[in-house]
Nucleic acid binder design. Structure first.
Lengths: 130, 130
DNA sequence: CGGAATCCTAGTGGATACTG
DNA sequence: CAGTATCCACTAGGATTCCG
């Protein structure tokens, strides 16, 4: 311990850093939470998701669903008819994460005005400087 | 309304989609929440953050701090001495977001075992197929 | 000390075409 | 319908250098 105490703070920060990164890697991507938000309304087919999300490519929808399935947050239900039918739904754990995300949306909802105002103020300050 | 009702679900989803994207863009990047987590322990200097986060480049630390400041989540306090001293701290709103992030960490903590297990199971299933 | 500017690479994700 | 495969563009972010 070469003279710490003043610079490095609470060691628990380091511990939590790892899992923090994990969640963020999980939900921080472009589509995962959007898919989960839709599935929180109930089971949906692949094509339903594709149309509902609008802007997502087939590639990304598939990749997103796969990784959600891989992590046990979404379940894939295949009905081997012709044409095939595949439904997706949240697992119980997926629902809990969806709940957390909703809390985050709540925060955004509550503070969006503040953030936008701060942003505008900052930008005009910058322009004044430039 | 050209035959909806069966495919597109709850319209509130669309509404929330936007703010959801905004929060995620805000906290989804590589460093923002890490910086906020550190600042939740109290005011810190630029160099303290740089050493504490370890792995962050000067460029990214500066960019991260700037965007957090821009959104009114972090405050920048300059002491024009020589050499200069700059401190950063969370704003009250920044603290509330930090709280949300902590909730997310809580979720990760609680379910990390489940997610890892699901992941391993999925991967070995894939390998069996291949 | 606390940055800004420039350069460059790696990974994320879009467009398109093809398949069971 | 529900994907897979390939190619390509963009940008987040790292390394380095310079500045007040």
């Amino acid at each position: 311990m070469t003279e710490e105490g003043t610079l490095t703070s609470a060691p628990h920060t380091d511990v939590r850093r790892c899992e923090l990164r994990e969640v963020l890697d999980r939900i921080g991507d472009k589509w995962s939470v959007l898919v989960m938000a839709l599935l929180s309304d109930g089971t949906k087919r692949y094509s339903e998701l594709q149309r509902a999300i609008e802007g997502i490519s087939q590639r990304m929808l598939t990749l997103t669903l796969r990784s959600l399935e891989r992590d046990g947050l979404v379940e894939r239900l295949v009905t081997p008819t012709s044409p095939p039918r595949v439904d997706y739904r949240l697992t119980p754990v997926g629902e809990t994460l969806s709940g957390q995300v909703n809390a985050l949306i709540g925060w955004a909802d509550e503070h969006r005005g503040y953030v936008h105002a701060a942003r505008d103020a900052f930008d005009s300050r910058q322009q004044a400087t430039a």
